[in-house]
Simulated scan of single mutants.
Amino acid sequence: MTTAIDTDRPQASARSLHRRVGLSDLHVFPLAISGNVFGWTSDVMATNGVLDAYADAGGNFVDTADSYAAGRSEIMIGNWMRDRRNRPDMVVATKVGKSGDNPGLSARAVTASVHASLERLRTGYIDLLYLHIDDDTVPFEETLFAVDELIRAGKVRYFGGSDHTGNRLIEARIAAAQMGLAPMVALQNHYNLLHRTEYEGDLARVADRQGLGVMPRFALGSGFLTGKYRSRADIAKNERGAEAAKYFNRRGLRVLACLDRIAAAQQSSPGSIALAWLLSKPHVVAPVASASHPEQVADLVAAARVQLTRTQVAELDKVSA
């Protein structure tokens, strides 16, 4: 079932749903649209359609990386913002560390990567910069100094981690405090109903203590939690089915059955319910999810308006434990 979104509602309605990213002054729609398929499975027309549908529904938070489609994702997002003249309305997050041109997190690589991203995105600043990897070949202080210089220069507003352990986040906060550098405000980590342990231990505790805004990636389990994979045949006929195959087991099917029941009660969809469950968790600001076609966007943004009951959250907690 697809949840209808009334795109004629006043924009203030969407703004009233915005959540603050950690201790920053960024306020975002509680669903970030991912650019990981832009320039890969989505061509220019599909990408523009997805971004238009997302913005029309009140979305303002776009997540990409310099390594997505070798930079083409950033180019397509930048061209879309230029053509729609909406850069001031959007919060743009990108990541550095994995690009082929500037790999790693040395000061030189971080600076060169950000400048390249700014050019591709056709913008003068990045709202939220993630360190896409934890590069243990480079002193953490070197990376933090490089990011701080970019922030002081106005080229980056805030930054966060994307592949860091709780201990490394603590180390970063201590180093920033000692050296007077900008602290992390956000964390992006693999987190969904079928992948909980990695985040819900040390990372959740650190996010709480540091006031980090959490943006779960792989929020829909590579599409499995949308209900699109109901059989092995469904997995076999989809080009991205192999990514969801690991969830096709008894536990995964039990979670999907629970999502179906709650979706029926909420007059919603399984994917919307899976995202709403994430939004019920402390410090989660905006799950990151992708759409290859404009018609897929409605179920994603609908999650922002789903109000799960305590019983429904508890049911999902239990079945996914």
Rank of each mutant, 00 (worst) to 15 (best):
T3Q: 14
T3S: 15
L17H: 04
V21C: 10
S24K: 06
D25A: 10
L26A: 03
H27K: 01
H27E: 00
L31M: 15
G35D: 03
W40P: 12
T41M: 07
D43Q: 09
D63Y: 03
T64N: 15
A65Q: 09
A65C: 10
E74A: 11
E74W: 10
I77C: 08
G78P: 05
G78E: 15
W80A: 05
W80S: 05
D83L: 10
R87T: 07
A93Q: 01
S99E: 11
S106V: 07
A107E: 13
V110D: 02
T111H: 08
V114F: 08
E119W: 00
I126W: 09
L128M: 04
L144W: 02
V156N: 03
D163Y: 09
G166V: 00
E171D: 04
A172H: 05
R173K: 14
R173Q: 11
A176V: 14
Y191V: 12
T197W: 02
E198T: 13
D202T: 11
A204W: 01
A207H: 06
A207K: 04
D208A: 13
G213L: 04
M215T: 02
G223I: 05
G227N: 07
S231T: 07
I235P: 07
A244T: 12
Q266H: 11
S268E: 01
A274C: 07
L275E: 12
A289M: 03
P294L: 06
V313N: 05
L316I: 00
S320H: 04
